[in-house]
Nucleic acid binder design. Structure first.
Length: 278
DNA sequence: CTCCAGGTTCTGC
DNA sequence: GCAGAACATGGA
């Protein structure tokens, strides 16, 4: 395609990386994906061993490599995560999935939207926030909206259909870059503790922010899918959330976050781990 | 109309 | 500490 830069990639799947559930605000158009990153819209496609991209303001390959964690040794990930037959199946199901480096503030606010809400519902809320408070970006004959740096009052946030989450979102929306950059300097346990001081941020949302945006690959977000899958396959089937987290930390170790993402996507899309209860 | 959704918090033991 | 209920909203 004309005007697109190319990055030679191996051990990478754009499709699995975007569609595994870690990120909500992207749009698919045939083979093309559109992704708003900061004030930039990325258009992406993968073909013949290359990741092709162009953008509204001309970011370089370095930015894209960082965003998709292409600088990571994938064989280390696979070696660490492939501990048993279930995990090997999950990995084969979405080989090339990489944990992205999302914007921390956007990631946190988006996952605040995810409380007791479906995946399409989360995207609807996040898109609504961007449309209402973000900057309009025209690109490729379409319009996009950056994720807002300033969110309005809880009342205005509620107007985006966020329901009981509105106050939490408005509060977290006032956090500046400094808050998140300080988290980067902490160890996993301390960073998680800081996040959980925020209204509406429990274990799961804290782990999502730590894993998907701040690079803490040991974070293992336990949602209702992960809890069910881990309980049924590794524990006695009646495990509580705490025991699932403890198991993951000891069984998967430093790359637990990758294990979680492979399992989550496998559980939701393979049809081979059908819900039994809950 | 009822049930449910990548949870968290509050309440009552 | 640990179960259960409440919490807004939109889609099935």
């Amino acid at each position: 395609m004309q005007g697109m830069q190319r990055i030679a990639v191996s051990d990478f799947s754009l499709k699995h990386t975007l569609e595994c559930g870690q990120v909500f605000r992207f749009d698919k158009a045939g083979e093309l994906y559109y992704l708003v990153a900061g004030d930039d819209v990325l258009k992406l496609r993968q073909a013949d061993g290359f990741l092709e991209f162009s953008s509204s303001s001309g970011v370089g390959a370095g930015f894209v490599k960082g965003l998709f964690r292409l600088d990571e040794d994938y064989s280390c990930v696979l070696g660490s995560v492939s501990r048993d037959s279930l995990m090997r199946s999950a990995v084969l199901h979405s080989m090339g999935l990489r944990i992205m480096r999302q914007e921390p503030r956007e990631c946190l606010l988006t996952y605040l939207c995810s409380a007791n809400m479906s995946v399409p519902g989360v995207k609807r809320m996040a898109d609504g926030l961007a449309r209402k408070f973000g900057r309009r970006i025209a690109f490729d004959g379409m319009e996009f909206f950056s994720f807002p740096v300033r969110i309005g009052s809880a009342r205005e946030v509620r107007g985006c259909g966020t329901g009981f989450r509105a106050e939490r979102i408005a509060e977290a929306g006032s956090l500046g870059k400094g808050f998140f950059s300080r988290l980067r300097g902490l160890c996993y346990v301390d960073a998680k503790e800081k996040l959980m001081l925020l209204n509406g941020v429990g274990d799961k949302i804290a782990d999502c922010c730590l894993l998907y945006s701040l690079g803490f690959l040991e974070a293992f977000p336990v949602d209702r899918w992960i809890r069910r899958v881990v309980a049924a396959n590794y524990l006695d089937g009646t495990a509580n959330e705490r025991s699932v987290r403890d198991f993951a930390a000891s069984y998967f170790g430093g790359y637990a976050g990758y294990a979680q993402q492979f399992l989550y996507h496998y559980a939701r899309t393979s049809g081979r781990l059908n819900p039994v209860s809950r």
